[in-house]
């Protein structure tokens, strides 16, 4: 990691990430995460798939997420994914990914574009049915979908039956956190 004299703030504007438990659920602000979008260039789809496989980067199917170490990924749109990796080892994630794909893919740093809140606990659907139209009861455990929560466009990435990540625009982190807290209090 580069040595420099600037001190980062969390998306909620503090030195340390927030966490809170409400009823059976725990909300956590996750900062140890680097993100980059990866989009295959036209006609290079096969090549991107091979290079991703060689680099250990999963490229999940539509509306799905796939975990991995160090790389996980979730689907954004046709031939485009969000690649996840630990921030500590992949702070400049784009610079790390670029040489792996050359000019076969377009790669864009997305780390600080998003805030990630993890929500874990039993019966998450009771909370999320008050937030968005995703049917968590019927959804698979590796769902990844864009949705709207209180006017905010978000990605919902399910990690397990009882755990999911909500990605929202970093600038509205406080509004999204408030929406999640309010729904949890309402549901439990």
């Amino acid at each position: 990691m580069a040595e420099h004299r600037l001190k980062p703030l969390t998306p909620l504007g503090h030195d340390r990430p927030e966490t809170v438990s409400i009823g059976p659920v725990t909300l956590t602000e996750v900062v140890d995460q680097a993100l980059a979008s990866l989009a295959a260039r036209q006609g290079r789809e096969e090549e991107v798939a091979q290079k991703a496989k060689a680099a250990g980067i999963p490229l999940p199917a539509a509306a799905r997420a796939e975990p991995g170490t160090p790389y996980g990924a979730f689907w954004l749109s046709e031939q485009s994914w969000m690649v996840e990796a630990p921030y500590a080892s992949h702070e400049d994630i784009r610079a790390i990914l670029l040489p792996l794909f050359g000019d076969a893919a377009s790669i864009t740093e997305q780390t600080d574009a998003w805030v990630r809140f993890d929500v874990s606990g039993s019966d998450l659907s009771a909370m999320f049915e008050r937030l968005c139209n995703v049917d968590l009861r019927a959804a698979p455990d590796n769902l990844a979908t864009r949705t709207v929560i209180e006017h905010m466009g978000c990605y919902l990435v399910r990690r397990a039956r009882d755990r999911l990540s909500v990605f929202g625009a970093r600038s509205s982190a406080a509004a999204l956190w408030h929406a999640l807290e309010t729904a949890a209090h309402s549901a439990y």
Partner: peptide, 8 residues
């Protein structure tokens, strides 16, 4: 390929 980076 397009992606927003306003917030990044």
């Amino acid at each position: 390929q397009l992606i927003s980076t306003t917030e990044a």
